[in-house]
């Protein structure tokens, strides 16, 4: 238990200090502190506490229901263009910030998805989510959005290929905070 806590030493320090700051802000009626909590912090906390629990429920269900062979066959090593297309299809329908893609990356890895496809997932997940695209078109116009997508997807497929080539013979493994 103590060893477990030690791993989070930095995080816990930040949390305790911030909790102190919140307390002081409200007790001393320090408006800067109150605003920080009520605007930016609250916004992020809300996002985190709504999206992530759903994400982890889905990850858990996916983990117990989808057999490794299925993933390995369709998006594993040697899955080619079809594998890339499947990853993009999976990624564009998701919601959530970049950090929500990492637990999914670990799950896909565990189930035998190839590294290239995992990096394709991480890339398209953050750059081409359909719910966000509607927003983008609304504020920046369809020309901007379409052009950005046409450029972004190949660039991030290329990055995924580079990452896989680099890591291929390095005994690399994606970990999870609960591996110990």
């Amino acid at each position: 238990m103590l060893r477990e806590l030690k791993k989070y030493r930095f995080d816990l320090t930040v949390i305790v200090l911030f909790a102190g700051l919140i307390g002081i802000s409200y007790l001393a009626e320090w408006t800067t502190g109150q605003q920080l909590v009520e605007t930016t912090f609250w916004r992020f906390l809300k996002e985190m506490l709504t999206i992530l629990p759903c994400m982890f429920i889905l990850i858990g269900l996916f983990d117990v229901w989808i057999p490794r062979e299925k993933i390995e066959k369709h998006v594993g090593r040697g899955s080619g263009i079809k594998g890339i297309a499947l990853m993009i299809l999976l990624a564009v329908t998701q919601v959530g910030p970049l950090y929500a893609a990492f637990p999914v990356a670990h799950l896909l890895w565990k189930k035998g998805c190839s590294l290239r496809n995992i990096f394709v997932y991480v890339g398209t997940f953050s750059a081409a989510k359909i719910p966000m695209l509607t927003f983008e078109i609304g504020f920046l116009g369809i020309t901007f959005s379409v052009l950005r997508l046409i450029l972004t997807i190949p660039v991030f497929i290329l990055i995924a290929i580079i990452m896989e080539r680099y890591l291929r013979n390095k005994k690399y493994a994606i970990r999870s905070p609960d591996d110990s």
């Binding site: 989070y8 930095f10 995080d11 816990l12 930040v14 949390i15 911030f18 920080l36 930016t40 912090f41 916004r43 992020f44 906390l45 985190m48 992530l52 629990p53 982890f56 429920i57 889905l58 990850i59 858990g60 269900l61 996916f62 983990d63 117990v64 229901w65 950090y99 637990p103 999870s176 905070p177 609960d178």
Partner: peptide, 25 residues
């Protein structure tokens, strides 16, 4: 079993997530 797996991962990530969110805000 799936819910337990998901919850465990979420909890282990929570401290880091919270501190990142605090620093970002």
């Amino acid at each position: 079993e799936g819910l337990k797996k998901g919850a465990l991962q979420f909890l282990k990530l929570l401290p880091t997530l919270l501190s990142v969110i605090i620093l970002v805000s």
